[in-house]
Design a protein around this nucleic acid. Structure first.
Lengths: 348, 348
DNA sequence: CGTTGTGGCTAGAGCGCTCTAGTCTTCCCT
DNA sequence: AGGGAAGACTAGAGCGCTCTAGCCACAACG
């Protein structure tokens, strides 16, 4: 960055004309130099850059975007409250840069809904939109996809109008369940994500693993959600059920929708006097920072953030440059085994 | 948002001219209507809006910014990994909107340093920069402040070149310490933030409270940091000290730099077999989401995010509109008492 | 010697808006 | 009837860039 403009020239920042005048060349030449285009001698380039430095000049992005045939912008919608989105944003920056695009960020927050976020991105004439875990209805996304090249990340969507990039959640849930099965568990319940993106897939994965193990009758899905509260409530409800001597015994393992949900389950279990993993094994999803904390030490399923970001940008670019050939790309998840899972407890 | 452009007019989005033509008015009129300026009859407004709707028109922000005398943009630099920044960003959106400004977001991440984030903001010709907890050296911020109206949030900085908006951390730490004193604790140690912004202030607050209570000799600050690891390590080190029969007994309470640090302390204490708050009281700082989790239930100090955001925007606007009259604004923090603090344990 | 490149450079027309300085009505007040 | 004044609307000049066309000087080629 320029460190200090020598001439604050009437308060306004220096323009290309200022640089051109000082370097005694045309404005076009300055443009050529700053875009690293052929058409200027080495000596002139140096002269222009020097003049720019002296004036503290940096090209005006607004003008640049306006006059360029293409804006070179990728609009990213993310939820400010979601650490996972934060990781994605970072990875998107590097992925976009590698392909010569810039990112325009627009946050979603309780007080700022997706419509507003998208409208603002569209107003900047982004060439494509990358939405992280959007909650808008399918129809809305479909319509949006007709308007602008669209990539939906971490959410399933069946449409020709958008690219979908997500982790293979079904596989992830399957891996989590199989891990528990391998430890000898049979009474495994799932606390699902309610209406959160990915819920249906993770339910399917859990169910598939159970059925494959011949435990179809043991399948049990509790309604949960993406927050600690959801996990806690679900487990409290479970624990409150009257113990039926003839009925099935209490579950020995829980597959939670995500790490936050798993934390809620852990809390409820602890309050109910259960030891983890001695009395109960718990698996989360996301491998968030909290999962790695020593006293949480949660077995979980890791999504490949860098891969998701790279794919998202690649698909966005493909949609921008080529005809809309919608694809749905799945990234493989990876089980991370930690201390919250252990062998099935012996019946007392 | 417009739901579906009736005419995708050669692939390119509709412009003001398209709308003007369709509504049979001049471009200027369309501009007036979209800026909600006086100078158009009610009937015409409706006609223009209708035409725009039919064309799926939305003003091009790039052109808007360029031609407007002022960009109306507030550039915000935030760290993608920091939940606290997320909260601030949300609050900034509403605060900025209330004063007629828009936000331009630029993220800082391990792979994207502050220089890049700032450069990108500057390229958009933001009228002011709001930096959330910047880690750049004072000199750099000072220089930046000479270049553009600058507001530094949640970081202390002694300069005329920038506005500083932060929580009164000294007071916060004082409140935390006084709370423990009121509960009867005397052996209170602080695990500080190492070099993190706010460390010095919080140390002062702790020290002041102790001295005021006549416990100057009991003051003890352990080097910590802003992460769980830091808190954990600090407490482990403390616990590892040989018990000196003549020396002071073990502390009965800890004032941690922030919630993450406090969590580390909690972890270490639990592993050492201590019950919280029976054997040890712990206070955090930030009132983060984790502090509110039932099984953490951390007594902590809450920063007024909305107030910080409002002040930050107000100061930014003041700097933009008026002469640089640098101010350093302190927001009062508030102690939130939860379950991690209790009366001083009776000597066994 | 004319022709054809070619490297280095410039003129000038946009990009899609905003905004100042009008013009043209119509209405109101003496 | 004349003289504003207000309201509705338009022309056109920017804003700071990019980019196409084209100019000029010089070299290489036949």
């Amino acid at each position: 960055m320029t460190s200090r403009p020598e001439s604050a020239r009437a308060g306004r920042p220096a323009t290309m004309s200022d640089v051109a005048a000082r370097a005694r060349v045309s404005r076009a030449l300055v443009s050529i130099v700053f875009r690293d285009q052929p058409g200027a001698s080495q000596a002139t380039r140096e002269r222009v850059r020097q003049a720019a430095r002296e004036l503290g000049y940096a090209p005006d992005q607004r003008a640049r975007l306006l006059s360029r045939r293409r804006s070179g912008l990728l609009g990213v919608q993310f939820a400010v409250e979601h650490p996972f989105h934060g990781e994605l944003v970072e990875a998107l920056y590097t992925a976009a840069e590698a392909r010569g695009y810039e990112l325009a960020l627009s946050a979603v927050a309780p007080s700022r809904d997706e419509e507003r976020a998208v409208a603002s991105l569209l107003a900047y004439r982004c060439e494509a939109l990358i939405l992280l875990g959007p909650t808008a209805p399918d129809g809305r996304l479909d319509a949006l996809g007709q308007q602008v090249p669209l990539v939906v990340v971490a959410r399933n969507l069946r449409t020709e109008q958008a690219e979908v990039v997500r982790t293979d959640d079904e596989d992830g849930a399957r891996q989590a369940t199989q891990h528990l099965l391998a430890l000898g568990h049979t009474r495994i319940v799932q606390v699902d994500g309610g209406g959160a993106p990915g819920s249906a897939e993770r339910r399917r994965g859990y169910r598939a693993a159970m059925e494959r193990a011949g435990l179809a009758t043991q399948v049990r899905v509790l309604t949960g959600g993406p927050t600690e509260r959801d996990g806690l409530d679900a487990f409290v409800r479970l624990a409150a059920e009257p113990a039926d001597p003839q009925g099935p015994r209490r579950p020995s393992a829980v597959v939670a929708f995500n790490d936050r949900c798993a934390l809620g389950v852990l809390q409820a279990a602890t309050q109910a006097g259960l030891q983890v993993p001695t009395d109960l094994s718990v698996v989360g999803y996301d491998d968030s920072r909290m999962a790695t904390l020593p006293w949480v030490d949660l077995t979980t399923v890791r999504q490949d953030v860098a891969e998701l970001a790279t794919l998202a940008v690649a698909r966005a670019v493909a949609r921008i440059e080529g005809p809309p050939g919608a694809a749905s790309l799945l990234t493989p998840p990876r089980l991370v085994v930690r201390g919250s899972t252990g062998p099935v407890p012996r019946p007392a």
